[in-house]
Nucleic acid binder design. Sequence first.
RNA 1: CGGGGCGUAGCGCAGUCUGGUAGCGCAUCUGCUUUGGGAGCAGAGGGUCGUUGGUUCGAAUCCAGCCGCCCCGACCA
Length: 447
Amino acid sequence: MRLSPAVRLSEYFMPTLRETPSEAEIVSHRLMLRAGMIRQESAGIYSWLPMGYRVLRKIEQVVRDEMDRIGCHEVLMPTIQSAELWRKSGRYDDYGKEMLRITDRHDRDMLFGPTNEEMITDIFAEHAKSYKDVPRMLYHIQWKFRDEVRPRFGVMRGREFLMKDAYSFDLTPEDGRISYNKQFVAYLRLYARMGLQAIPMAADTGPIGGDMSHEFIILAETGESQVWCNSDLLELDLLNADIDHRDPAQMSDVIGKVTSYYAATDEQHDEAKYQAEVPEDKRLSARGIEVGHIFFFGTKYSEPMNAKLQTKDGESVPVQMGSYGVGVSRLAGAIIEACHDDNGIVWPEAVAPFKVGLINLRVGDAACDAACEDLFAKLQAAGVDVMYDDRDERAGVKFADMDLIGLPWQIVVGPKGVAAGVVELKSRKTGVKEELSPEAALARLAG
RNA sequence: CGGGGCGUAGCGCAGUCUGGUAGCGCAUCUGCUUUGGGAGCAGAGGGUCGUUGGUUCGAAUCCAGCCGCCCCGACCA
């Protein structure tokens, strides 16, 4: 799981492109290709090169932290599943062509999992038999495959994609709501930590009904669906809301507050209600990208899969379940959609492949080399992820590449500055540059 | 799955209409010069023109099939 804390660009594999490959239409796809993060293998299927893979793992790490925090525990389930499981739930025949069906050497029907409700239900049911075995929450982060008719937008709508899926198990629907709320709260924090304003919007609950399904949407021009909301939602500081997930009342207060504002995707949008509830100057209609979806589905799978618990009274009841998805690979693209400028990507710090890019403007110059090596070592010692551009390239190339890959901070070390005892510290986001001593730069970044 | 488009060097493209055996920019390699925002000069390497078949003396170019990819729509994390 550990990411390398520091790399030298002269040893790294980061094939940046000056020109945009013609197949890429939207900005995140273009920038991911240009920054050497991914390579398309076939329609909707990508290899993740070192830079892209780092981002993916940073996103995973934030997700893991927030799942751990609410007592949700990680498992790993296979990508290939047996058709048997899916026949039990009845979905094998329902799923249609989106399911990639495979036959093994013994002619058994297998499939590349598009999701894992059946499997997790089966796993849980085998070992959990009593009301004492709940509540429980499990999650996994795994590659899934849905044979989309028309993959597009790079990793945002691939056929193969990396998902975090969590599942909750409870005795009663009321307990199920508590688990649902824990996930809801974790989602608020998780997106905020990634530097995103993800807005929870009521989603279709299907046959279950109720109010227990939300999509988490981030706003971006290239979003795939139209959304409407109250702009006050963008002002809520959700990361700093210190919510105790063991306090159901507090959780439902916070969620009640967040969901009290109007917010809807096009399937759920009610123009009359929107007009009535949202003051004119707060009406916000924009394009949105779905980066998460949480759903309480009760006994939809536990019933057919025969996942039952015994109550205190000795009665046998199907377990109440919910599932909670985050599109990890999609987020890599979605974050870029939300965070870029004309020069390239502008990574939020929590998911940036490296925090700092150290640029040596004159490789081979003894003073520049020494100053860079010293900073490189000290940044590592301070626990700062750093990429050192020690390539023998021209300044313009280095600046352009560094802006393109979007590391939050750049330290520029050149002969003039070194002679004067200063380096330049540049914020990728604001573009603000300042000259200061190497020690001062270090102190600023080590925080 | 309906509609449209594209496949020529690592990338971006021209050449296809009007058939005569492939070119430009960037990248790569060598040398010299240059060196704080994608350098200059000189030289070099690199393409069975997606694929199969057909027409023709001759096909990147015309015809047919197949494969791949992209865009719009319907559908989805």
